[in-house]
């Protein structure tokens, strides 16, 4: 029991050490600006969108598939959700419903094509990204995008609604990954497809479901995106990547943290850390280009440092071992 508590503490420290350092650093640099109650609220609120995107990408990533089209799916779903909400007059429930529907349809389509065409997912998703980016202009004939008219519709991206959406999504994600046979199957399949296939797992079906599930989270992200921005314009020429840039950075950090804690918790901590950093950089007056550069660099330094930590630990253990060995050799000589 005692041992368990000790181990738990150790893990918590290992998980938190890097995020805490970054938060502390930016806290100091901004003279505490990012730690005011208002700022903390903003940071948490802004974290929801990238967190949802990561949840959308992670099941497929575990299966060894990188779906780059997810940003375009989000844009298309946000625009569709906004337009249909305006025309039906169903308000926020309408926005959520239509965003979810659109996203699920699109990612399911991605999954179908992935299974039928059998080209590498990376290639397919880059192609589909262009297609999905063009969809809003093709279907709605609008190049300027869509604006939601009433201010009250912004509520979905504000507390408490935004946190309720997050809580629902997080619980769903946590259960899928940790508590279901499906979650276990994707880990097995991601580990070794051939062995999993031989063991009787239906590989195509598992991948298909992975895409469909990713649509649920992408849809939720889309609704929040629309509600937050009030206006969403279609992208072109891979422009939708910028939508998911923050999520990408968070994803790397989250995957690293998952060495010490559950991945679901890891991504939340990661995303909050990254968002705090963004806000800190804003407060320090960096423009968006510099912010991205600095964030990436910090992340790489972090990962490089932590990635080499096991070597450092081993190096120290080796030093001790060498000392003992030399001592033993001395002794042998004198005898």
């Amino acid at each position: 029991m005692k041992y368990k508590i000790k181990e738990f503490l150790l893990r918590t420290i290992k998980t938190m050490i890097f995020p805490a350092c970054i938060l502390l650093l930016f806290g100091l640099l901004t003279k505490g600006q990012i730690f005011t109650g208002r700022m903390i609220m903003i940071i948490l609120r802004q974290s929801v969108f990238p967190a949802l995107i990561i949840m959308a990408m992670l099941p497929n990533l575990t299966l060894g598939m990188m779906d780059f089209s997810i940003g375009a799916v989000v844009t298309m779903s946000a625009i569709t959700g906004g337009i249909l909400m305006n025309t039906t007059g169903w308000g926020l429930p309408g926005l959520v419903l239509f965003s979810l529907l659109t996203a699920v349809i699109l990612t399911t389509l991605t999954g179908l094509l992935n299974n039928v065409l059998r080209v590498p997912t990376l290639v397919l998703s880059l192609g589909l990204m262009l297609v999905y980016e063009a969809l809003p202009s093709l279907i709605f004939r609008s190049t300027s995008g869509v604006a939601i008219i009433k201010v009250k519709y912004a509520a979905l991206a504000q507390p408490p609604l935004v946190f309720i959406v997050f809580a629902i999504a997080f619980i769903l994600f946590y259960i899928i990954i940790n508590k279901t046979t499906y979650g276990n199957n994707i880990k097995a399949l991601g580990g070794n497809e051939e062995l999993a296939r031989r063991a009787g797992l239906d590989v195509d079906k598992i991948k298909q479901i992975g895409f469909t599930i990713s649509g649920i989270f992408a849809g939720a992200a889309a609704a929040i995106y629309m509600s937050n921005n009030g206006q969403v314009s279609p992208n072109a020429a891979f422009g939708s990547i910028t939508t998911i840039m923050d999520a990408f950075l968070g994803l790397f950090l989250g995957m690293f943290l998952s060495n010490f804690c559950n991945i679901s918790i890891g991504i939340v901590i990661a995303v909050v850390t990254m968002t705090a950093m963004t806000n800190g950089l804003v407060a320090l007056g960096f423009d968006s280009t510099w912010r991205d550069i600095i964030k990436s660099v910090v992340l790489f330094i972090l990962l490089a440092f932590s990635g080499n930590q096991p070597y450092f630990v081993r190096w120290r253990a080796n030093l001790k071992r060498a000392e003992e060995a030399n001592l033993a050799a001395e002794k042998a000589k004198t005898v």
Partner: peptide, 12 residues
């Protein structure tokens, strides 16, 4: 499969 637990392997 290396990336999952022993138990998961036994019950894949």
């Amino acid at each position: 499969i290396g990336s999952i637990s022993v138990a998961s392997n036994i019950f894949t």
